[in-house]
Design a protein around this nucleic acid. Structure first.
Lengths: 344, 344
DNA sequence: AGGTTATCTGCAATCGTTCTCAGTAACGAT
DNA sequence: ATCGTTACTGAGAACGATTGCAGATAACCT
């Protein structure tokens, strides 16, 4: 309860509050030493609230993510945290994949934070009006909203990643290549589907509706999608799964059904997993540096903030990379084709 | 820049600011409808800073964890997030296993948050003085400091979990049971070591120094520890690894050395892994509900806050559970013993 | 010595709320 | 008609810091 204010310190030293304030902001004042001592003795801490009110700045940057238990977003947060610096802190909002929560949280953010780093749930809608309306700085990370180009962003080259993944399967001789995708209302969902389609086209493989399942980036969704693919009459020989959680789900499904990887089906995932090397077979994936994305987003935000918000939107793109392990092989069917060159 | 204040609203409607303020806090006032309209038209949002200054409350609860990329802590955060309610938010601090960062962050927290939920880095020291000094409410989760009983806490029955794990190995016939532990300066590190020792004693197995490695809860640490164990003249036939990250490291080490699980060595981990079922063999672990721990911690905090801080410290204990999968088997040596009953 | 800087000082206004206090109007009871 | 009660009102003082302003002091130059 001992709420020591700047006035108490001033009284103790015998100077005005202004002097204490100036000392605190780095000016040289007369009784430096005594002030320092008094602050320590009284255990004085400046009131953040009062400072905020006066300065209009809070020293807090919000990070809004759909799901903090997703290692990818956890790494983004960690990267941002590592770059935030000493005089600012991070406010975390976990929207739990709920538009409603996202909206509500966002509206609470105004006045509490200096800026928002955000992976929006959907790009279908315009950016929440308060961003433009109140001039609350925002940096999009991993995903953007429809009018996203108006704000800074740090994205992955999703289309390229998906294309590399699909090309990789094609180069192994696969023709029946399915994709378990994310919601096409999100940036990564859409772009990865685009990349998959582009690769198919380049490989002169026709896109089949039943080989493309739009799921929801969740483990349960990946499980269900894989089950669905296995029930098709002519099941795919290879599957590109568009994120880590769905990949886990798909692997669980295959395991439960006793389908052998990569003998019966090849799998390539998007986003590396901590345990990708440990599972059997080790999982081949498209990887990218999530930590870097978070860090870059924070850099952009800080730059913007330190510039007094006068900067132009900047768009940064993080590269993707194929990590070959053991979950892709030649298709079973095409092996058959080689052994008896009769059937189609 | 349109910084609309309560005064603007008051002017617009033609009443005093007090009336607007009262309307905002739920009282019935005269021109309800006009006020509502004015607020929407002007797009007025109350200034959080001013409210904080006046009320002394911020509506923000801090969560301080060592490493957000550790799925266990991510789940704790998620659990807390899910319970925080609509009128409060979470401020995340990731200390990155650095005492210095922890200390610095903590000192910045005062005045910015109403309370702190925290997994401290070490229990060697007293709780940071400002907790008691300023009366900033705190709830410890997973770990406590030396004087932790003075504050509410949500812990796991670490000793019991470790004992179950070790018992389990003993019941499989293992006698050469090693442990890769966490820092004994932390609650979980110490308690799990205690449980291991207790189980050994009960099984009448003498504790060997070379079978107990005090590591650091990191993947790299687990890797190194496992390597060290493998180089012992009489290497253990089973290892209890005291957390998820170290387990990953240990598994990587075994994989790199080509040691087969569970044929050559049995492994049991503490804390479940999302991919525990997918790795080969599926990993047997001691599991607990991290989300629940976070949720309970938040409950305790909110209860405390809503009570005006008048509550007694409460201590809650979350149960552990053995999840049998496939990483433990009979020891190799003892199989040999059975086949030729000669040696030792 | 007198004038000019340079440096530091305290006063007081300010940020946007909340909250106490005194006051007013309406209404029913006496 | 007076009183008490209820239900609301506005003025103005906080909350704890920052900052423009004018004044004070010391240092320096001619």
């Amino acid at each position: 309860m001992s709420t020591v204010t700047i006035t108490d310190v001033a009284k103790r030293v015998g100077v005005s509050v202004a002097t204490i304030s100036r000392h605190l902001s780095g000016f040289t004042v007369r009784n430096q030493e005594q002030i320092r001592e008094a602050i320590i003795e009284l255990n004085y801490r400046p009131s953040a609230a009062a400072r905020n009110l006066k300065s209009g700045r809070t020293g807090i940057i919000a990070i809004v993510v759909p799901d903090i238990t997703n290692p990818f977003f956890a790494s983004i947060v960690e990267g941002a945290e590592s770059t935030v610096g000493e005089d600012r802190m991070i406010l975390l909002v976990n929207t739990g994949d709920s538009r409603e929560r996202e909206e509500k949280a966002l509206s609470q953010l105004f006045g509490r934070v200096d800026g928002v780093i955000m992976a929006p749930l959907t790009e279908d809608e315009e950016s929440p009006s308060f961003f433009s309306q109140f001039g609350l700085p925002i940096v999009f990370v991993d995903r953007v909203t429809k009018d996203g180009e108006k704000f800074s962003s740090v994205l992955t080259d999703n289309a390229k990643g998906a294309q590399i993944a699909t090309d990789y399967l094609i180069s192994h001789g696969h023709r029946k290549i399915a994709m378990i995708g994310g919601p096409c209302s999100t940036t990564p969902g859409k772009k990865r589907a685009d990349g998959y389609r582009a690769a198919l086209k380049k490989g002169e493989i026709t896109f089949l509706n039943e080989y493309f399942i739009e799921s929801d980036f969740s483990e349960a969704g990946g499980y269900a999608a894989m089950c669905q693919l296995l029930e098709i009459d002519a099941p795919p020989t290879a599957v590109f799964v568009a994120n880590n959680l769905m990949t886990m789900g798909a692997l669980h499904a295959l395991r439960d059904r006793g389908v052998s990887i990569p003998r019966e089906i090849s799998i390539i995932g998007f986003d590396d997993l901590e345990c990708a090397e440990l599972i059997s077979p080790p999982l081949t994936v498209i990887a990218r540096d999530a930590r870097l994305q978070g860090s870059q987003a924070m850099d952009l935000m800080i730059k913007h903030l330190n510039n007094g918000g006068a900067t132009q939107p900047e768009h940064s793109m993080v590269d993707v990379q194929l990590v070959e392990r053991g979950s892709c092989a030649l298709p079973r069917k095409s092996q058959k084709i080689r052994s008896n060159k009769i059937d189609h």
